[in-house]
């Protein structure tokens, strides 16, 4: 009897410290004869958990059993494999790795989320991280030369001083990395009047979009309500605050 173990997601997960990870293990009962299925979850030392063992000894009407466990992500940054799942039945044993979890700071996690939304919008996006570096570098898949510098911010109020910091960083990197545009993504809706005024007056190519709008845009794009050209025009076409409401 052969055991096939599949995990979803296959690759890594992103999380901030203390996030809970729910492990749902669905075990389909074998068709042939069996007495006991033993499922063991071995956790990486970073999680500080002992292996947990589960035994399935009887069949049921639906022909499968489910096991659920919850683990808490350690309070430190870095990349950790969660561990492995080990299944043993009739002296056959098979194991599979669980995905790895990349633990990021709150800002880092936000930057990662911004990069993911951009990828959903058919952009190449790489989170660079590190002090004095652009948060994310992105370019539309259809035209990779239109490389843009992305700054994500989690501040509760996006004010002029932060805007000036972001634009000075953009000017510092623009020539070296050949950036054509700065895209600022704010989590907050509260953008100071000074920023709006500065955006009206600046000669630099800068787009500012709220994360909520970026999410809306990504979901509209997924549903086919906006085209790739509309997306690129909105994000890269003009300097100012991107208004997604205008599309709906």
């Amino acid at each position: 009897m052969d055991v096939i173990i599949k995990t979803d997601p296959k690759e890594r997960l992103f999380a901030i410290p203390k996030t809970r990870i729910r492990l749902n293990v669905l075990v389909e009962h074998p068709k042939g004869n069996w007495k006991r299925i033993q499922v063991t979850l071995n956790y990486n030392a970073a999680f500080g958990l002992t292996p947990s063992e589960h035994q399935i000894t009887s069949k049921n009407d639906i022909g499968m059993s489910s096991i659920s466990e919850e683990v808490v992500v350690p309070d430190k940054l870095g990349e950790f494999p969660i561990g492995e799942v080990n299944v043993r039945v009739n002296n056959d044993e098979r194991s599979q790795y669980l995905p790895t979890v990349r633990i990021l700071s709150e800002e880092g996690y936000f930057e990662q989320m911004v990069a993911e939304r951009l990828r959903e919008l058919e952009f190449e996006a790489v989170r660079l991280g590190g002090p004095r570096k652009p948060d994310v570098e992105t370019s539309p898949k259809k035209d990779l030369s239109q490389r843009a510098h992305v700054e994500g911010t989690l501040e509760d109020y996006y004010e002029l001083s932060k805007f000036r910091n972001d634009t000075s960083k953009f000017r510092e990197w623009r020539r070296a990395r050949q950036y054509k545009r700065l895209i600022i993504v704010t989590y907050t809706d509260r953008i100071s009047e000074g920023v709006a005024r500065a955006l009206r007056r600046t000669h630099d190519p800068i787009s500012l979009i709220r994360y909520r709008d970026l999410e809306t845009l990504a979901s509209m794009f997924e549903k086919g309500l906006v085209s790739i050209y509309q997306v690129q025009f909105l994000l890269l076409g003009h300097t100012g605050i991107v208004q997604v409401d205008a599309l709906t």
Binding site: I4, I5, P9, I16, L26, E106
Partner: peptide, 13 residues
Amino acid sequence: ALAPKTVKVSVHF
């Protein structure tokens, strides 16, 4: 961000 993340594991024979 703190909402639980789910990892699905399916075992077939």
